[in-house]
Design a protein around this nucleic acid. Structure first.
Lengths: 98, 98
DNA sequence: ATGTTAGTTAGACCCATGGCTAACCATTCG
DNA sequence: CGAATGGTTAGCCATGGGTCTAACTAACAT
């Protein structure tokens, strides 16, 4: 079961900066500047993370004046929950047999 | 919230070979040879994946004769489910406000 | 004792990732 | 207009991840 979208999603969440962005956006949209503020990192480096999550479908963005507003794509993480749940159930089914 | 263990867990699941190993082990323990069989890959490369998951606490292993048996560490993935669920709830709480 | 099986260790290689600076646009403010 | 703000693009660099081959060890089979 080589699922390319799981590759991208799991890899995206493997970085603490990106998880922090998600944690922030879960509470509502924000411009790049505000998202970047807590991360001691040059803006271009930070923007890279934004782009990774946008192309991965985890967040979406729109240009508004000179700002770029970012927000969660709330269903993006469902495949991950699905996969994890699947594993858990497979495990429990086999554990019950022994 | 820089959680190092989430780093390791998410990164581990970002690789399709490693997810496949988990999917297999969810159905019960197996020796390295059997795990490696479906993966067109040299044994040392494959062993690397095993080691990553073992040090990440996702699987455990024991030497048995000349084989090494691997099995799931069934609670390892709980932090991931926890984090995902947390995000989902944060999102829903803020969505309700608008 | 010899050969075969199943891992293991060591070393090398390549490319993707994550970070930087410098220079450049586009929008808004005074 | 001119300066400041918020992003963006381009190019560089170091590190790490995933792969390989070659050579070695430990256990089992004959």
């Amino acid at each position: 079961m080589a699922n390319h979208s799981l590759d991208i999603l799991f890899a995206a969440l493997g970085d603490p900066t990106r998880r922090a962005i998600i944690e922030r956006l879960a509470h509502g949209p924000a411009p790049v500047k505000e998202l970047a503020a807590p991360h001691d990192m040059a803006l271009p480096s930070f923007l890279q993370h934004i782009k990774i999550m946008e192309t991965g479908g985890i967040i979406a963005t729109r240009k508004e004046g000179r700002q770029r507003i970012c927000w969660m794509e709330p269903n993006a993480l469902i495949p991950l929950q699905g996969w994890l749940e699947w594993q858990r159930q497979a495990w429990e089914a086999q554990a019950r047999k022994s």
